[in-house]
Computed example of a mutant assay.
Amino acid sequence: MDIKRFFDDDGAVSPVIGVILMVAITVILAAVIATFVLGLGDQVSNTAPQASFSFDYTEESTVTAYDGDTDSADGSLNITHDGGDSIVASNLYVRGSQDDGAWDTLTKPGGASWYSTQSNIKAGNRIAVNVNSGDTVRVVYESAEGSNSATLAEWSGPDA
């Protein structure tokens, strides 16, 4: 057995490992480039915020509307942001109640706005809307571009 031959042998596994690494790097680069070329990279950044909301329904026999007229609503619903991401008021909507619209367009009794367009709705912020006992109300997030929307919370009235 010639021991010198083992020390001089340069034909090890290195070329095989080198080729495998080069192929792996090429595949990873191709996948990253394809993701952005096909537009899948934009969808990653357009995810809906994670937030939780609670609902507190108050039954009323007559509800005075925000403009001072008597409303046909059965009651009012307080919607409170309990925690999670803060959301710009103009991107957060109440759908399915008599006071349907964005948080920045809904008004308090007396006509004052609850929040401005750029207000950040965060934990502890609330809004009140007129509802009927058979309504289903959803809190919906819509991106500024309008390309992405998601229902963050839903409430069903006692008669729904």
Results as ranks from 00 to 15, higher is better:
residue 133 S to E: 01
residue 66 Y to T: 12
residue 146 G to W: 01
residue 131 V to P: 02
residue 61 S to D: 10
residue 152 L to R: 11
residue 69 D to L: 06
residue 46 N to A: 13
residue 132 N to R: 10
residue 117 T to P: 01
residue 83 G to F: 08
residue 73 A to T: 06
residue 107 T to P: 03
residue 49 P to I: 06
residue 63 V to C: 04
residue 69 D to P: 00
residue 60 E to C: 09
residue 115 Y to A: 04
residue 122 K to R: 14
residue 125 N to I: 11
residue 98 Q to S: 11
residue 130 N to M: 13
residue 119 S to T: 15
residue 105 T to P: 00
residue 96 G to V: 04
residue 68 G to F: 02
residue 79 I to K: 06
residue 142 E to N: 02
residue 141 Y to I: 01
residue 59 E to Y: 08
residue 133 S to H: 00
residue 132 N to C: 00
residue 73 A to Y: 04
residue 147 S to A: 07
residue 129 V to I: 03
residue 149 S to K: 08
residue 116 S to C: 00
residue 124 G to N: 09
residue 98 Q to A: 14
residue 53 F to A: 10
residue 143 S to Q: 00
residue 47 T to A: 15
residue 124 G to I: 10
residue 148 N to G: 07
residue 70 T to M: 07
residue 58 T to M: 05
residue 104 D to G: 03
residue 75 G to I: 05
residue 141 Y to A: 02
residue 153 A to Q: 12
residue 53 F to G: 08
residue 111 G to S: 03
residue 63 V to T: 03
residue 90 S to E: 13
residue 126 R to E: 15
residue 101 G to R: 01
residue 74 D to T: 12
residue 136 T to Q: 08
residue 67 D to H: 02
residue 87 I to V: 13
residue 130 N to Q: 14
residue 135 D to H: 05
residue 116 S to I: 00
residue 146 G to Q: 01
residue 72 S to H: 11
residue 56 D to I: 14
residue 87 I to C: 07
residue 67 D to C: 02
residue 140 V to N: 04
residue 128 A to S: 10
residue 123 A to E: 11
residue 64 T to E: 08
residue 53 F to R: 10
residue 139 V to G: 04
residue 100 D to E: 08
residue 109 P to F: 09
residue 59 E to S: 08
residue 137 V to A: 07
residue 146 G to R: 02
residue 57 Y to W: 11
residue 47 T to W: 13
residue 98 Q to T: 06
residue 145 E to G: 03
residue 78 N to K: 15
residue 57 Y to G: 05
residue 52 S to D: 14
